[in-house]
Computed example of a mutant assay.
Amino acid sequence: METSGATCPYAEEAMVLVRGTRLLAGAVVVACMVLVGPSAPSGALFGRSVPVDAVRDVVPNRVMTWNICNPCDASNVGRAAEIATYAPQVIGMQEACVSDVERIREYLKSLHGLEYHVEYGSVLQDWGRCGGAPWNPGAFGQAVLSAAPMTDSVEVEYPDGGSEDRGYMAVTTMVGGQPVRVFNTHLAQRRQETVRAGQTRVLAEEVARHDRAIALGDFNAVPDAPELAPIWALAADTDPECRPSSFGVCEPTTDWRSKFDYVFLRGIAPLKHRVQTTPYSDHDLLYTDVDPAFSEGPAQPV
């Protein structure tokens, strides 16, 4: 469910009925702009448009994490356009309603020609966040989109979620032509350090089983937070300058200028990364290009 109240039902139905017909889909969306006005926080229906130099096809070694923010007054058309700009092979989303993810996937395909498989790691059935009928509320949690098929999908709820149920999901998929285990998580809220410490122990135990893994998501903690120590002991952040010490220089990933979002790499070398602000969430987009065939060696010590 769109939280803005400005979603045009005709556009949603048209996207389903005319999957491959971009012209008609675009015309319906423009009509909706006249009927309902802007729906993005920036005041524009789509926010910024996809730049001319945007990626035209999926980048096979690119991985992205994005807390898409819920509830937020954001357009799924705009969210899809942001993803399409960088066209990662794998996208891990947090605070994701199944209904929103399905719409984003449809727009990625019908408006941008990008097809993704999906797996969900929903830990809540939340009518307030995701809509649906009171007896059948929408599912809320994590999601992974991948241009390649995914296997061995698992969904795990942490024994203690804190003030809201939290968990992680994991899939095996192709990144840069290599099979990689990808973990996507959303840890407990900011002031719940002891809860997060228990969650990272659970997550680290599973990540440690794999020689080549990516653990991404919203960890709700700055790099030198003690509760992240089990993850740092296994993997390095995609930003080589970011370390769990006062000597590290970590680019912020949130509107309040803290680094909460990570792409941790185990047995995989980073090539380049980017943090991109967006009008569609209070978290920035973070993506990285990696070389799964080359290992950096052991993780940096904490």
Score class of each variant (00 low, 15 high):
residue 244 P to Y: 08
residue 233 A to I: 03
residue 194 T to G: 05
residue 233 A to T: 13
residue 199 Q to K: 05
residue 168 Y to S: 12
residue 176 G to P: 12
residue 227 E to T: 08
residue 191 R to D: 15
residue 196 R to D: 01
residue 244 P to F: 09
residue 192 Q to E: 15
residue 179 P to S: 12
residue 197 A to V: 11
residue 209 R to W: 10
residue 234 L to F: 11
residue 248 G to N: 07
residue 232 W to S: 08
residue 190 R to G: 01
residue 204 A to F: 07
residue 184 N to H: 00
residue 242 C to P: 08
residue 211 D to Q: 12
residue 177 G to F: 03
residue 199 Q to H: 08
residue 170 A to R: 09
residue 207 V to E: 04
residue 207 V to N: 04
residue 247 F to V: 06
residue 252 P to E: 13
residue 244 P to T: 07
residue 185 T to E: 01
residue 201 R to S: 12
residue 175 V to D: 01
residue 165 D to H: 14
residue 205 E to Y: 13
residue 201 R to G: 01
residue 171 V to H: 02
residue 194 T to H: 11
residue 168 Y to H: 15
residue 181 R to P: 01
residue 166 R to G: 14
residue 220 N to L: 13
residue 222 V to D: 06
residue 176 G to E: 11
residue 206 E to P: 10
residue 203 L to D: 02
residue 247 F to W: 10
residue 244 P to I: 07
residue 231 I to C: 12
residue 179 P to T: 10
residue 190 R to C: 03
residue 205 E to Q: 15
residue 198 G to P: 11
residue 220 N to W: 12
residue 220 N to M: 12
residue 245 S to E: 07
residue 169 M to C: 11
residue 207 V to L: 08
residue 208 A to T: 11
residue 189 Q to K: 06
residue 219 F to R: 06
residue 213 A to S: 06
residue 186 H to L: 03
residue 183 F to M: 00
residue 235 A to G: 10
residue 235 A to C: 11
residue 169 M to P: 11
residue 199 Q to W: 06
residue 240 P to C: 04
residue 186 H to E: 01
residue 244 P to H: 07
residue 243 R to I: 12
residue 238 T to F: 02
residue 213 A to R: 03
residue 192 Q to M: 07
residue 242 C to W: 13
residue 229 A to R: 12
residue 211 D to Y: 04
residue 189 Q to N: 10
residue 231 I to Y: 04
residue 224 D to M: 11
residue 207 V to S: 06
residue 217 G to N: 04
residue 194 T to K: 09
residue 167 G to P: 15
residue 226 P to Y: 12
residue 193 E to T: 14
residue 185 T to F: 02
residue 252 P to N: 13
residue 188 A to I: 02
residue 165 D to G: 14
residue 239 D to F: 00
residue 205 E to N: 14
residue 186 H to Y: 07
residue 198 G to A: 08
residue 180 V to M: 07
residue 221 A to V: 12
residue 199 Q to A: 10
residue 251 E to R: 14
residue 173 T to Q: 00
residue 178 Q to G: 01
residue 221 A to K: 08
residue 217 G to L: 04
residue 192 Q to Y: 05
residue 192 Q to L: 09
residue 214 I to T: 06
residue 173 T to I: 02
